[in-house]
Simulated assay, not measured.
Amino acid sequence: MKFEHVVIVNEPDNPLLEDISREELWFGLLCRVENPAPFLPGLEGCSVLDRRGDELLRELDFGELKIRDRVTMVPMESVTFEAERTAEHAGGTLTIRIEEPVPEQLVLRFMYATTLQEENDDGPDMIAQFVRSAYHESDIDTVRVIRAIVSSGRMQ
């Protein structure tokens, strides 16, 4: 299953939404890489197993479930998470890319590639639809967490 969607970060025409800079948004994405617990409910721990330049290998501890992923960063542009496939985990890839479709409007594009089937013999797969919906909600929460990090003044 492959799918993508956009979550708006800055909307120049919306005075109720406080703008954050590309640097602040990138800092928030780096927080998700280095300390993913606020972004991933149920995560009990994260260990960095290897770090080389803009790439690292992590192990995410969800209790009984351990997931290894490789994170590749393109500074100020994107982060890609490649989860290894195991007997307990289907594996897959998530790329989060910072985009600016018009000046001062920042969005995050979330692009997923998983091993789930899009359809079965009866039509659209209900599990795939549920996963898409859950990922979308999680991605909206990612922006909320980044906004909370930025507003807490941790960047100063």
Rank of each mutant, 00 (worst) to 15 (best):
D122N: 04
Y112M: 11
T115Q: 13
N120T: 01
P101Q: 07
F130A: 12
E137K: 04
V107S: 08
M111E: 10
R97S: 14
R132K: 14
I98Q: 11
T93Q: 09
M111R: 08
L106E: 06
T95S: 14
Y135C: 10
T95D: 02
S138L: 13
P103F: 01
L116A: 14
E99N: 07
L106A: 05
V102L: 04
M111H: 09
Y135L: 13
A113N: 11
A90T: 08
E119S: 10
I96T: 15
M126S: 14
E137Y: 00
L106K: 10
A134P: 00
T114K: 08
T114N: 12
Q117F: 07
L108M: 13
H136R: 13
Q129R: 14
Q117M: 09
G123H: 04
P101E: 02
Y112K: 03
V131I: 15
A90I: 14
E99P: 08
D125H: 12
D121M: 02
H136A: 01
Y135S: 09
A128W: 04
F110Q: 07
E118S: 14
I98L: 10
H136D: 05
R97N: 02
H136N: 06
G92E: 11
D125T: 05
F130P: 00
M126I: 07
L94D: 04
Y112S: 05
I98N: 14
I96S: 10
A90H: 07
F110N: 07
S133R: 06
T114Q: 08
L116S: 09
Q129N: 12
E118W: 05
A90N: 03
D122I: 03
I96M: 15
F110I: 07
G92R: 06
I98K: 14
T114F: 12
Y112A: 06
F130K: 10
H89D: 11
I98S: 13
Y135Q: 13
A134R: 06
R97W: 00
I98R: 15
I96F: 08
D121F: 06
M126A: 09
G92A: 07
P103Q: 13
Q105D: 03
E100V: 06
E137G: 03
G123S: 11
A113Y: 02
D125N: 15
F110K: 10
G92Y: 02
S138W: 04
V102G: 04
S133D: 08
E99C: 07
I98E: 09
N120W: 03
V102W: 03
E100C: 09
Q117N: 07
D125L: 09
P103R: 09
D121E: 14
H89V: 00
E137S: 13
D122L: 06
E118F: 01
H136F: 06
R109Y: 00
P103E: 15
L108T: 14
A128Y: 11
G92L: 04
M126D: 11
D122C: 00
P124Y: 01
